[in-house]
Design a protein around this nucleic acid. Sequence first.
DNA 1: TCATTTTATGTCATATATGACATATTAGCA
DNA 2: TGCTAATATGTCATATATGACATAAAATGA
Lengths: 105, 105
Amino acid sequence: MDAEKRKRLEAAGWTLGNASDFLGLTPVEAELVELKTRLALFAKEQRRVSNLSQNALAKKMGSSQSRIAKIESGDPSVSLDLIVRALLTSGATRQELAQVIVGTN
Amino acid sequence: MDAEKRKRLEAAGWTLGNASDFLGLTPVEAELVELKTRLALFAKEQRRVSNLSQNALAKKMGSSQSRIAKIESGDPSVSLDLIVRALLTSGATRQELAQVIVGTN
DNA sequence: TCATTTTATGTCATATATGACATATTAGCA
DNA sequence: TGCTAATATGTCATATATGACATAAAATGA
C-alpha cells in the first residue's frame, strides 16, 4: 500500500496495521506466531513426503488424528513442542528445521 | 568407550546405555530434549550478552525470575515455546536460533 | 567481614495443551 | 453417481506448563 492510499484511509477513520497490531501482539509474540506457522506448514509437507496419513503419524507419535489436523492448520492451541515432535517423527532433519526458521526474510 | 570395556562392564552386571535409554525416551523424544537443552544454554548466554538479570528479563517478557532460572537450568517443566520467547526477548535472531538447532553434530 | 544483588529450588492455584472421541466435510477413485 | 479413506472441526476430562511466591544459596563488591 502506498502512502497516498494510507493517508486517504486514515482520513476516512481507518486505523491501519497488520494482524499483529489487531491482535495486540508484541513483536516477540508476533515473531513466535510466524515461526510456528511456518513450521506448521512444513510439518504438513513433511508428513506428505513421508507418505503418512494424519492418522498414521498420530499413532507413530502417540497423538491423535484431530491433533495432527490442528497442528497443520496452525491452531493456536498447539505448542511448539508438539509441532517439532511431529516434524521429527515424520523425518525432518535439524538442518531442515533450521532452514525453515531462518526463512526467506 | 571401546568394545572391550563394554564387555567387561556388562559381564559385571551393568546395563549400558545413555541417558535416553535410561529414561526410556524414543529417539524423537531424545532429540527434542537435546534440542531444548541446547537452546536453554544459549538462552542463558543471550540473556547475559544483553545485560539482563533473570528478573529484568522476566519482567520484560511477562514471566517470573524463578521461571527464567528453570528455563536456563533445563527444567523439564519448561516448554519450547517459553524457551524461544526468552531467546527472542533477549535479542536472539532467527539466524542464531537456526545455528543452535543445527548444532555441531 | 557484611550488605546487596543475583540466581536456584520448591510449592501451588490457575491457565493452557493434550489425546480421545464424535461427527462433519472433503478427496479420490470406481 | 456412490463408496471409502482422509481430513477438518468441536468438545471435554485430564495432564502439563505457567506465574507468583517464599526462601535458600551464591555471587558481587564494599
